[in-house]
């Protein structure tokens, strides 16, 4: 792993870090159209990486490559390497089901299952067989809800349906649901875009707490959000990564003029 870090440090001037995911020359096609072109990206451990860029630039597509969610889309083809712990996740022998257990995901619109709050969170542990018995499962559900900062709000109604919660609560429920599978990496696809500012603040606060134990990659259309919470930022444009670096540097002195244009609001 060490060689990787040195390699990337040589190309980009940024803080030293341990990389959990490294994407190398990733190309993605939907049928005949190319959505991503030669994307290289190193994702640091226990930090928040944000992917920004105008809509349709491929940032969500890239995110969905990282846990092979694109497999469920007909006609989608991925080329190149995406290494997790040094294993190419598109290589033979990789089970996408288990990959997704290690790399969790939170979606744009809160999508709790039409089940009780408890069952929503218990879903992951149940399918993966993580809990040996009912007590362990209860424990896992409660811990996950606690980590997601939802425990106080739902403690007394664990068995009412997940859809009865408010939007922000639903999104935190979805985060708790992802945490219950005990992933190492959490992918978030514009998790706050459907939420009001107060709920957004709560979720952002939660994301910042989570980075202690998890590596987080977040796609966002809000540059302020990227600046507020992330340590590292990648700017996508027309299916390419234009610039990657420490968030501070990207927002204060971008080296590429397209980045400059985007963050100053000239396009996007």
């Amino acid at each position: 792993m060490q060689s990787l870090v040195e390699e990337s440090a040589a190309t980009e001037q940024q803080t030293e870090f341990n990389s959990v995911i490294s994407a190398k020359r990733v190309n993605v096609f939907y049928g005949d159209t190319q959505a991503l072109t030669n994307v290289d990206l190193e994702v640091p451990e226990n930090q928040i990486t944000s992917l920004i860029g105008p809509s349709g630039c491929g940032k969500s597509t890239f995110l969905r490559c990282l846990n092979r969610m694109n497999d469920t889309v007909d006609g989608c083809r991925v080329e190149g390497e995406i290494l997790l712990d040094g294993v190419d996740i598109y290589g033979p022998g990789v089970d996408e089901v288990l990959l997704r257990a290690r790399v969790g995901m939170v979606f744009q619109k809160p999508n709790p299952f039409p089940k009780s709050i408890y069952d929503n969170v218990a879903y992951g542990p149940r399918i993966h067989g993580l809990a040996a018995n009912k007590d362990e499962l209860d424990e896992m559900v409660l811990t996950s809800l606690e980590k997601a900062g939802l425990i106080n709000e739902v403690q007394n109604r664990l068995h009412s349906t997940g859809t009865s919660l408010s939007g922000g609560q639903q999104q935190r429920l979805c985060i708790a649901r992802a945490l219950a599978v005990q992933p190492e990496i959490i992918l978030m696809d514009e998790p706050c875009s459907a939420l009001d500012p107060i709920a957004t603040a709560k979720v952002e606060e939660l994301i910042e707490e989570l980075k202690e134990n998890y590596s987080i990659i977040i796609v966002t259309h809000s540059m302020q959000q990227a600046a507020r919470i992330s340590q590292k930022t990648a700017f996508f444009h027309l299916g390419e990564v234009v610039e990657v670096g420490d968030t501070e540097k990207i927002f204060t002195s971008p080296s590429d003029e397209r980045t400059q244009g985007y963050i100053t609001g000239r396009f996007g």
Partner: peptide, 13 residues
């Protein structure tokens, strides 16, 4: 589709 995504995202078959 979001429900399917949610489930696949958690590693369900």
């Amino acid at each position: 589709q979001s429900l399917r995504d949610g489930s696949y995202g958690l590693g369900a078959t």
